[in-house]
Design a protein around this nucleic acid. Structure first.
Lengths: 218, 218, 218, 218
DNA sequence: AATGAATGAGCGTTCATTCAT
DNA sequence: CATGAATGAACGCTCATTCAT
């Protein structure tokens, strides 16, 4: 069969952008909805936001929301999973980069800090739902998945600590708890800083000083 | 009805118990409602619990709930504030006890650990709502109050660290951030332990070892 | 335990009416809702009636409807099943009365005629849903149940015809089809009469004359 | 574009087919939509079918449906009216054929039987909507029209009976009610047979035997 | 004082219809 | 013309709150 001029044009377009204009527009609309929903959810919490509100903020009709997301819960889940994935992959990548363990953990802290700052809204949502491991909203399924993501990162961090301990870089303490401690500590700083940036600016050097240098041998 | 003999009886009763039988009964009812509500809220989250359900669990009529609490939100707030108060006063007291700063911080950790374990339900609720300082439910007013309670405790802990630093007990680091770090770290351990008590039992010695001994001079 | 005056009064009341005043009121409310719903459903059909409308017609709030019926469908089903039961039991009883088969079938016709006239609304609904065995609305379950009711009556009628045939009362034709024919014929008359009572008054003697006397031997 | 040659071509085409290709295509499309709609409506009922579904089944876009039918109701009406017309004209024709009245009524029964079997889907729809003269859906207008069709056929049947009576073919009973009775009876058989073809196969001889021969003089 | 039946505003969701492409 | 994404009115249903008993 000979491709008609339309599909030829379409395929040429796709060569460059991989996606047709229509598809790109769709993705953008989807993103707009997600953004509007994120803002509202993190401002007021899942149950205090109506689909109507999201539609208005996103400047679409309610029905359009349902073209992109099966229901309110799916929309919510999508938002959380997106961030969770972003965080997990970003932090995992950092911990897999080459370099000594000391540098890796430093980089992990910097990245986490950056992610938190750039995604304050999402962090608020994330912790309200999976907050320090505690969730009571929406489906248990979501909670489980979020916890699993968190656990994966902690495990990877623990591995780094373990290697560091083997190399006599760090003091010989339980690496899992070390990871937990480091993460919990940084959370406390980040939350404190995010809540009240003027009085308690986030200072990664300080976190390192308090936590990290003590663990570091010599 | 003969008012005199009644109020006489009442006054006599009050001599002993400070509260008449009626009043004692009221307080007990109130407590029963709060308990039922706490259980349900921490099981399913604020928005997934109906007043009907609370009434049934507490074995009262719905109307009765409204005799004790202005509305659902007030009931919820009461529960959170109660715990927050319990935690604040318990932890504040510990930090005011005489003894060296090292012992105080150790005692703080033990107390916090005990409070968490004894009030898992409330802790779940607290962190889901005010989790690590993040709240998106109910009124902002509640959030502010809960944060203020948390801040008070951290401040007090910071004071203890400060004194400890002055006495050259601890290394000369910013006492506020030290407090934050200690608290964040212990939270991470406690949540990890509460979520999965078998794999990650809460071990206060370990927390001390990781965090505390390093801070301790000599 | 000594019954208090309230429960004594209550039990005395129940002796007479079997039901307390409250319970009687509830049943009446239920009936009012059913009546309003019946009227609307038979006027406009299941899907063209809103719960709001039913509530308004019944002079209750929407929520109240849901106190009595789990959902719209349940309310609808209740209406249909009630009539179906009424018809089935009334017609079954007639066919079980003593007397010769000729008289029984005559009585069946008279009763059916009376039931149709007294329950025009319900008959409309019934036939719109299970109409001559055709239903495409609501759940298949309802359809099956309604058909089973209809079948029961036809079977009983067939038995009467069978006995009549054995006694050489009626001509020796298949009793089931005889029953079917008789019922179908009377339906046609009744519908015609119900639709246009002036031009086609329902005349049971006529039905008998056309159908019945021919079947009757001598 | 050269209008002349086009319209010439068109006119030539019309000479042969009376309709241009375009017009034929249009009619075919229309028929495809009606077929898809018929299937869905009779499977699930008017209100349980969406325009989307019809579009998908007919393999057109939703908008195309609206090019052919003003709205969903119009589409529905069209389907019902089509069948009603089919039935009316087929049955009317049969009753106008030459031959004695006995043969005419026999032929009427055979034709009706055939129409029912060949159009089960439509019969289901028809009776669910106008069932035995009972309609509660869509517009009253439709109901009136359908009833009028039915009435026309019954009237024609009544005329046949009347002539038969005049010729002393049939017993001297009211011809309208005779027609009604005959039709009602055959409906009962047909529905019983359509619902459960194995247990109650439709047997026109039986119908004739039960109803017809009794009416027949000598 | 305690009750719980009644209320009705407000939610999530659907789907007939439109219209820019 | 045909398309199908976008629309938003309208639905069934819930549940916090009230108030007659």
């Amino acid at each position: 069969m000979i491709p008609d001029s339309y599909s030829l044009h379409k395929r040429l377009a796709m060569k460059k952008n991989k996606l047709s204009r229509k598809e790109r527009e769709q993705l953008q609309r989807r993103a707009l909805i997600l953004q509007a929903a994120l803002e509202l959810f993190s401002e007021k919490g899942y149950h205090n936001v109506t689909m109507q509100e999201i539609a208005i903020r996103a400047e679409f009709a309610v029905g359009t929301l349902y073209k992109f997301f099966k229901n309110k819960e799916e929309l919510y889940k999508e938002i959380l999973m997106q961030t969770a994935n972003l965080f997990r992959s970003a932090l995992s990548n950092v911990l897999e980069e080459k370099g000594d363990e000391y540098a890796q953990v430093k980089k992990y802290l910097k990245t986490k800090c950056k992610l938190f700052m750039e995604n304050i809204l999402l962090v608020r949502l994330y912790f309200a739902e999976a907050g320090a491991g505690v969730s009571i909203s929406v489906k248990r399924e979501l909670e489980t998945e979020l916890r699993s993501f968190y656990e994966q990162v902690i495990q990877k961090l623990a591995c780094v600590f373990e290697k560091g301990i083997q190399k006599k870089f760090f003091r010989p303490l339980d690496p899992y708890y070390l990871a937990l401690a480091f993460d919990g500590m940084s959370n406390a700083f980040l939350f404190s800083g995010l809540e009240d940036p003027d009085r308690h600016p986030v200072d990664t050097n300080l976190i390192e000083e308090i936590f990290f240098e003590q663990i570091y041998l010599t």
